[in-house]
Design a protein around this nucleic acid. Structure first.
Lengths: 222, 222
DNA sequence: CGGCTCCTTGAGCGCTCTCAAGCCCGGTGG
DNA sequence: CCACCGGGCTTGAGAGCGCTCAAGGAGCCG
């Protein structure tokens, strides 16, 4: 299942149409997107929907001067496409090698699932607004770690692959790269988490993180 | 149309069920909600949907320690209810006397409209996340004024009623009451807007506000 | 007139940003 | 095998935007 499709060409930007074509060339409608590929979404009103099988996709918005806000991080199982996020004003980027399956044309019973997916996006977007508007930097990092653990950890222990760079995390959480790094390392020093390399993370004290994420106990030391 | 229904009792908190009952007691299914009424949403999975005819409703989330984030401001024409916003973890509050119409049971052709409404909520929530994560205080205020003008101004000139207090604006924009007041008055001194009383607003220089909202020109003076 | 809520304005603080330097590590080529 | 390079990460020092605390004004209602 993993090796059934070849990676797309090494282009950094792939139009959604090309992705659809690639999927349709395989019998199981699966495509593999190289790391750091930007998915370009032409104005055509395609309603094709993809399911992420493996990997990680970020939805982001840009301000005219280049400031970036990642509005959602999508892990395995999540749906995306113009039909879902409308991708109104969003771009999408695969943060690592990502496998997607084209699911639209496969079955019509999909509508209910797409509906559920949109509601999930809305629920997450509103929770994220609360994070961005009212949580401190430490609370944001803790919240993010719990969310990512939920989306990316296997059943084997609490470790998970952090597909986001510090910069990605900053753009997701409304912080700067340096602040993200400081709090991650603070949490490591305090024993809440540990790293393997810079990008594999273990939650050693999930309860502690949840307390911090909820806005309790975390002295503001920087 | 405005006087067809009597205001609900003066209680500050109204369960959604009561609102539905009140609507059903009038032939046109309209209810009037007093200012500052909190709409309580019991766990029952009612999918009834309301359309706002007049007034203003805020959807908000609370953190355990009382911090509040308003995740959306709904004006006339917008739909709301458990079926729309799921009201996952949201509360709702009428910011002024608000007239709503119960539309669910009326017609089945409503589904497409509800779908559109959810997508609109998602689009707005993601744009708001970008505002909260990446815009400065002045940019947030300018963006908010333009949004509110769009939702609440009649065709008669650019004036509109500001149903939100400074505190509401702060909770919507991820700021404090004082910062909101400072920037509103700064914009007034600069001739971008003017007030009648504290709560009727005129956009004198919409283009200027749009430039600021987009992140251009606005010296950080405070 | 007093009391209330909401708003305005000032002064100073602090959390997070900015700027800067240096480290880690994998890749590449001599 | 090692030097070099570059991207990503860490850490420090200082600055600034927005917050906190505080006082007072404006409008409303009894």
């Amino acid at each position: 299942m993993l090796a059934t499709s070849k990676p797309l060409s090494g282009t950094a930007v792939v139009p959604l149409d090309g992705l659809i074509r690639t999927c349709n060339q395989t019998e199981n409608r699966i495509a593999t997107i190289p790391p750091r590929t930007k998915l370009f979404l032409p104005g055509i009103d395609r309603s094709e929907t993809f399911r992420i099988l493996q990997g990680c996709i970020a939805l982001f918005q840009l301000l005219p001067d280049g400031r970036r806000q990642i509005v959602d991080i999508l892990g395995p199982g999540r749906l995306f496409g113009r039909g879902i996020s409308d991708l109104h004003q969003c771009g999408a980027e695969a943060l690592c090698e990502t496998q997607v399956e084209l699911v639209t044309a496969v079955r019509r019973s999909l509508d209910a699932e797409i509906n559920q997916s949109i509601r999930q996006m809305l629920r997450r977007a509103q929770a994220h607004a609360t994070l961005l508007g009212r949580k401190t930097a430490g609370e944001r990092i803790a919240t993010a770690l719990i969310d990512l653990a939920g989306q990316f950890s296997n059943e084997t222990g609490d470790g998970f692959q952090l597909h986001l760079t510090r910069m990605d995390l900053a753009d997701w959480l409304g912080l700067t790269l340096e602040t993200v790094s400081r709090y991650l390392n603070r949490f490591r020093r305090e024993g809440l988490v540990s790293f393997e390399g810079a990008n594999r993370i273990f939650l050693n004290d999930r309860t502690g993180l949840e307390l911090i994420a909820a806005g309790r106990e975390l002295a503001a030391v920087q």
